[in-house]
Design a protein around this nucleic acid. Structure first.
Lengths: 343, 343
DNA sequence: TTCTCTACTGTGAACGCTCACAGAAGCATG
DNA sequence: CATGCTTCTGTGAGCGTTCACAGTAGAGAA
């Protein structure tokens, strides 16, 4: 039983204590702390030793007060939270961002803006300068929070291309169009010629891009665009089922379907099998996301994997660069075709 | 195009600006900000109006510098992260804590201590006083981080009963023992008399408590404890399969199994079905956790639901109370039996 | 010698807030 | 009329840093 085990928190050592211990001035200690320029090797060493001996840790509040930086970053989710927290990709993203920031000794503040109240509160918090920048997860077209932050000049990096925010906002996204191209090329390479598509919502960039990739490859291959082969969904399983039913009605001769999400693809599989079509023999099915749904389906889904681990790392890199004064940037990362049983 | 859309962040108004605007002194503004005691209604109103007009938001760094509080809380995960981020219960917990803290205007810092380096870094960060308290997710017996934090007198609330940390650490946990009792009573109420169990790891409180509940109910019912009916696992699906095989070999006459996790229960179901036992007709199976695995199994698992939403709320409540000077507390919350197809 | 330049070090001020204290005003009590 | 009490208000100090500036010491050039 030591004395301080009884709950009392001792006042931690300050830069003053370190200076005294090392026999130098506050200024010198501060310089060592901030990169060690214009400090003699001897002083450098003395200060480092004193820091080790005293267990000194910089008081970030005092530092922030004068620098105006907070040395912390907000991770802001403005979408309904349930959907995202259940999404394993979101979890990879959150974890990746936290770790990438940790490497720079920057804490991540988790900000959930579900209700209007919380949105207001967090907007004020952020624009008051309590974080240096924001990692934004939002698919709202014209998200008011994002818009306000942009206006206030808060460094911002979105996950996925934001709609209607002009070019002032950085973003990191997977190459939806190229992923779609890969998948459709794959389906064509299997000899399929009547390739249908269930798109995502066409007011999201992902939805638009995936459709564009599909159309491009068909055009490349000299196949005429048949609008009966294309129906739209909203990424949900139910909309996949509805889409598949419409496709079967409009174009019953189809021999492949590219579905813009794995969840919808599950619905498509169910409808096709109910209709007596064998997958992949009669109809090949390709999904998008490489979500757990892809592995849980039977047959297991061929799908497009988005590089979520790299996305988080890039988001952090771009945000820190922007805080450092660089211009907003857009980063598009390549996707990967994962072949499984459904094609 | 407004001027400040071009990226320049204006210096935010300070307490000084508010005081001037309201025609009072800094002290009065500060008093209004901190509860409004000893402030005349007139001054109160003038200050609030000035705050609204100027868009003032308190500078937390300046406040923290003098109060010694940081008004922020760390959410610390010292376990391997993959396992937890994939666990939907963990997500509910993280979300719940964030929201409960948001209601008090307290930001949550996400801290992932996967490697030894990160553990050291975060320990220093926390003990330096950069957070007022820590919400801890850790099942390590004798977690060194938790031990150090406790020694340093950092307010700490663990999720689940921590092992080997003495009574100085608060915790919030589901009533594992009572949950187990409910499940075993339920199995007995179905007329089953040869009830087996696959336990969790017996170096965790959860593992021990669930086994204890099982034994208690059997004793109550006047059934003799048969050690051949009990095997241990580690919560993984694979260990559930292994456990079921051992059970079938040791006690092939069993007519029910209580499995200490849903994931293990999935393994048990698979083995039972492979061995030609019908569930629930021949053998009833009960799980624990109410994870998605419970719904994904066929038949769907009867299981014990832990109140994760309440756990997060209680963790925050207890932590804030402790920061406010109250003694460490242990909170045990009731579980719920969810009946499905497997019993 | 004197001046300039570079490498380094110490010092006071300031960041924006809270806290302790002093004091004023109003009212009741001796 | 003094005294005490309560309610309210303003002021100065200080929290632990960084930053700008002034200053020192030594080397090299004029």
């Amino acid at each position: 039983m030591t004395m301080n085990a009884s709950g009392g928190r001792r006042r931690p050592p300050t830069i003053h204590d370190v200076a005294r211990e090392a026999g130098v001035s506050r200024g010198t200690v501060s310089r060592v702390l901030n990169g060690g320029h214009y400090v003699s090797p001897a002083a450098q060493e003395a200060v480092n030793a004193a820091i080790r001996r005293t267990g000194y840790v910089v008081n970030r509040h005092a530092r922030s007060l004068i620098t105006g930086r907070s040395d912390s970053i907000g991770f802001l989710l403005t979408e309904p939270q349930e959907r995202f927290f259940e999404d394993p990709n979101f979890n990879v993203l959150l974890r990746g961002c936290t770790q990438a920031l940790a490497a720079h000794d920057i804490p991540l503040l988790l900000m959930l803006a579900g209700t209007e109240d919380e949105r207001r509160r967090l907007t004020r918090y952020i624009t008051a300068g309590h974080v240096d920048g924001v990692l934004l997860v939002s698919n709202h077209s014209g998200d008011p929070v994002a818009e306000q932050l942009r206006e206030a000049g808060v460094p911002l990096v979105a996950c996925g291309k934001p709609i209607g925010l002009g070019s002032k906002v950085s973003y990191v996204a997977a190459d939806d169009r190229d992923g779609a191209r890969d998948m459709v090329r794959h389906l064509l390479s299997l000899g399929r010629r009547r390739v249908g598509m269930v798109t995502g919502p066409l007011d999201t960039p992902g939805g638009v891009e995936r459709l564009a990739g599909y159309q491009e490859v068909l055009a490349e291959a000299g196949l005429e665009f048949d609008e009966r082969l294309v129906v739209s969904g909203d990424y949900s399983r139910a909309s996949g089922e509805a889409g598949a039913e419409r496709l079967l009605a409009q174009a019953s001769d189809l021999d492949a379907v590219f579905v813009a999400s794995d969840l919808m693809a599950q619905g498509v599989l169910a409808v096709l099998q109910r209709a007596g079509r064998r997958v992949p023999q009669d109809v090949a099915v390709g999904g998008f996301d490489d979500s757990p749904a892809a592995l849980a389906s039977s047959p297991e889904l061929t799908t497009i994997r988005q590089p979520w681990d790299r996305i988080s790392a890039e988001m952090v890199r771009v945000l820190l660069a922007q805080i450092g004064g660089e211009d907003p940037a857009a980063v598009i990362l390549p996707t990967e075709l994962v072949k499984r049983e459904s094609t």
